[in-house]
Design a protein around this nucleic acid. Sequence first.
RNA 1: GGCCCGUUCGUCUAGGGGUUAGGACAGGAGAUUUUCAUUCUUCAAACAGGGGUUCGAUUCCCCUACGGGCUACCA
Length: 470
Amino acid sequence: MSDKRVRVRFAPSPTGGLHLGGVRTALFNYLFAKQHNGDFVLRIEDTDQNRFVEGAEQYIIDCLNWCGITPDESVINPGQYAPYRQSERKSLYREYAERLVMQGHAYYAFDTAEELDKCRKEIPNFQYGQVYRDTLRNSLSLPQQQVDQLLADHVPHVIRIKIPADETVGFTDMIRGRGSFETNTVDDKVLLKADGMPTYHLAVVVDDHLMKISHAFRGEEWLPSAPVHLLLWDYLGWKADMPQWAHFPLILKPDGNGKLSKRDGARLGFPVFALDWDGAAGFDGMGFLPEAFLNFLATLGWNDGTGQELFALNELVEKFSIERINKSGAKFDFEKAKWFNAEWIKKSTADALKPKVKAVLESNGVKVTDDNYLLTIIDVIKDRCTLLTDFYAQSVYFFQTPAEYDLPAVKPKWNDDKTALFNEFKAIVNNLADFSSANLETEFKALMEQKGLKPGDVMLPFRIMLVGGK
RNA sequence: GGCCCGUUCGUCUAGGGGUUAGGACAGGAGAUUUUCAUUCUUCAAACAGGGGUUCGAUUCCCCUACGGGCUACCA
């Protein structure tokens, strides 16, 4: 394993937007690959045609690009192991499934969905396995000649793995250490569906082998099916090349319990997707920097042990380690995510921020004509912005004439007294011919004096200071 | 129900047989700032419970409780 080239894959299903957990899984895979000068492969697991969602595949690719963790091999950038879409690899899988049947490690099953539903309903703790398989309709329980007839008649059937009795399947997880399962508690999973498509279980093993994957990382929800995969690697004769495993902890809902789902965003008012999806704002649309988004995701379940929290992508590549990933699930905290963004905005140069800020301003109807002026403004206000979208409220008056000021609208915390005073000042300013900052300041002070107020009670609009310094 | 995984402040976490159990976010209180924000100081806040092992356990082992995941011809 030490001399083996590191190859990892991120293998999502195109069933909708790519959410937080998916992006984090992709990120960890990417970091591990880059750290070992290996390959990061994107494989599309679209074996369930019922759940296929138009545009989801492109969305996944766009998300990874936005994050800056572009795959080395994918459907749009195929390497030598193409195709990278499982639906296009359909013909490959049957051969392996048949081979398992031939070897006695799998069998044909003719039970209908209705029959199985009935079993599950009537028999407590029913599982399609060694206890009940002989009572069901499959090539193990039926006479050979009847099986041949059913097959010849093209009666719909699936191929199931035959889980052995009384064995212990052990394996090592890079995060959790040694683990094991008793085969008596594992059921005969379907390997090949009636439509000829493989299930995840068969496809993941065949493809990881064919694509020479050295390390298989995935979410913790896959831990219970690990024994099926382990057995498959063994039965297919590839045990020596089996990848090393790691199961990442889940990202949980911020309130209550359970793993974070795509619906939680709408319910709780924060994004769960990287980019906008299906009308819901993603982290991008919400005003997050990809650097901050990745930084937040990386430290949700991982740390380098030093207390450092801010990491750039190249730093993560250098310091990341699978072993330091936590074992327990972590609740998603939007407040902390925003803090990371504020820190990254502060860290970023005005130059780097410029295009993004410009886009925010323009989408709010502010035309930016002088880029240098914009750069100056960004430097002045970036410390006070948490989200990119804050740049509008924080800078809008720099782009307006005093007559257009409507400070209370963008400064909701102003109280009525300040608003009244401000409007009065605005009225005075509107009658001025000279908008120079010196003149504005003079007028402002005069008004304050007339009101019997100290200068500290209200400050001059920010614009005056900036223009004054320009 | 069965199987599997997990359990340190509200949240993310560090630590690890002997520590005042550390940091960050959020929260409280102050200071600075011509409002706000930033910045700074400061306060409050945790080892799920019970048994072992040990001179000593939050740390190692077991049990319980709790949480989560899986239990589809979905991934």
